[in-house]
Design a binder for these strands. Sequence first.
DNA 1: ATTCAGGTATGAA
DNA 2: TTCATACCTGAA
Length: 280
Amino acid sequence: MIEVQNSLCFDIRKIAESGQCFRINRLYGSTYSIVAKGRYLEIHQDYTNNVLQLSCSNQEYKNVWMDYFDFSTSYLKIQQQASDKYPNDRFLVESMEYGHGIRILRQEFFETLISFIISQRKSIPSIKRCVESLSMNYGDRINGLSLSGDCVTAYAFPAPSTIAQLDPDELRATCSVGYRSEYIIDAANWYLSKGSRYALSNLGYQTSCNIMQSEIFGVGKKVANCACLFGLHQLEACPIDVWMQRIIDEDYRESIPRWMDDEYAGVLQQYCFYYKRDLR
DNA sequence: ATTCAGGTATGAA
DNA sequence: TTCATACCTGAA
């Protein structure tokens, strides 16, 4: 277990509730578990002393989790820049204040792609259950540590080759993914034959977004944008879901706000999404 | 019972 | 291009 001073824009509660990741769960209080990159982590945020506790070694923190939490990107700078560029955008400025501490996690691409294929027409709890059963049924068993030093078992997200070989009916039965089961298997095959060769993160946002939409059955505009933003860390990707559409309709009189074309539109989208959803 | 939940493919206008 | 509709599933 290690302890680090949290001097960054980092709020684990908001990140967990921001809907970008389906494998962060609240255990108790402000303690969360995370399964990512074939590892299990527990993290506790002490909001009064501004301290983070993580259930890993200092080495693993530096090698794995600092990258995962995207600590090399300054979200403060992104916020300040946006405030300067769109000073009159009341909704955006309020959203940034409200969502301060949200970051875009550097999740694994394949897992992100499959997770957001699953997400269509599903509620977040339901998506989480699907991803969890997918991992339990077909993923590797992981041995992790809790914050108190106890051994914890978890399941990594399955490998592309494992998912590619599944029978659609079996997948549907074991993970209740419904009509998405063919999509999932198709995406895994795409990843094996082409996706992993493209080096999509180097091809840029527009190109990778178009490739995914045209080559993967079941991947449309929204899912492709989520895969770009959360799986490739292309921060200009701005997925328009029902909540974003509500923001456009209700808060911008049905016209696309300027910030949606910003180079950091995806980050700003997360603030607005989180803010709008909490107003429910 | 009906609707909704972070959509997409398809075919018609 | 835009629009309506079906689609697994589980929860409200």
